[in-house]
Amino acid sequence: MAFSADELRVLRRALAVALHPAPLHDEDVQDALLLAASVDEAVREAGRLRAFLLADLARYREALPGSLSGYLELLRDALAAGYDPQADDLAALRALRRNPAASELLARCRILAERSVRARLARVSQATATSAPTGPRARLFALPGGRAADDEPKPNPPAPAERPVPKPSEVFPPRRRPVPPPPPEERAAG
Results as ranks from 00 to 15, higher is better:
residue 3 F to M: 07
residue 7 E to K: 10
residue 17 V to N: 09
residue 17 V to I: 14
residue 19 L to M: 11
residue 21 P to Q: 09
residue 22 A to D: 08
residue 24 L to H: 04
residue 26 D to Y: 13
residue 33 L to R: 06
residue 40 D to P: 02
residue 42 A to Y: 01
residue 44 R to F: 02
residue 49 L to T: 10
residue 51 A to C: 02
residue 55 A to L: 12
residue 64 L to F: 05
residue 69 S to F: 03
residue 71 Y to D: 04
residue 72 L to V: 03
residue 75 L to A: 06
residue 77 D to N: 08
residue 77 D to W: 02
residue 78 A to F: 00
residue 79 L to C: 13
residue 81 A to T: 03
residue 82 G to K: 04
residue 85 P to Y: 00
residue 94 R to G: 08
residue 96 L to W: 00
residue 104 E to M: 06
residue 105 L to Q: 15
residue 106 L to D: 07
residue 107 A to T: 12
residue 108 R to C: 04
residue 109 C to Y: 06
residue 110 R to E: 11
residue 111 I to F: 15
residue 113 A to L: 12
residue 119 A to D: 06
residue 119 A to F: 02
residue 120 R to T: 05
residue 120 R to I: 02
residue 121 L to K: 11
residue 121 L to R: 15
residue 125 S to V: 04
residue 125 S to M: 04
residue 126 Q to S: 12
residue 126 Q to I: 00
residue 127 A to P: 01
residue 133 P to H: 08
residue 139 R to K: 14
residue 140 L to M: 11
residue 144 P to W: 10
residue 147 R to A: 01
residue 147 R to M: 00
residue 148 A to W: 11
residue 151 D to I: 12
residue 153 P to M: 04
residue 159 A to M: 08
residue 160 P to V: 01
residue 164 P to S: 05
residue 164 P to A: 05
residue 164 P to D: 02
residue 166 P to H: 01
residue 168 P to L: 11
residue 170 E to T: 13
residue 172 F to E: 11
residue 174 P to C: 03
residue 182 P to T: 07
residue 183 P to M: 03
residue 183 P to Q: 07
residue 188 A to T: 05
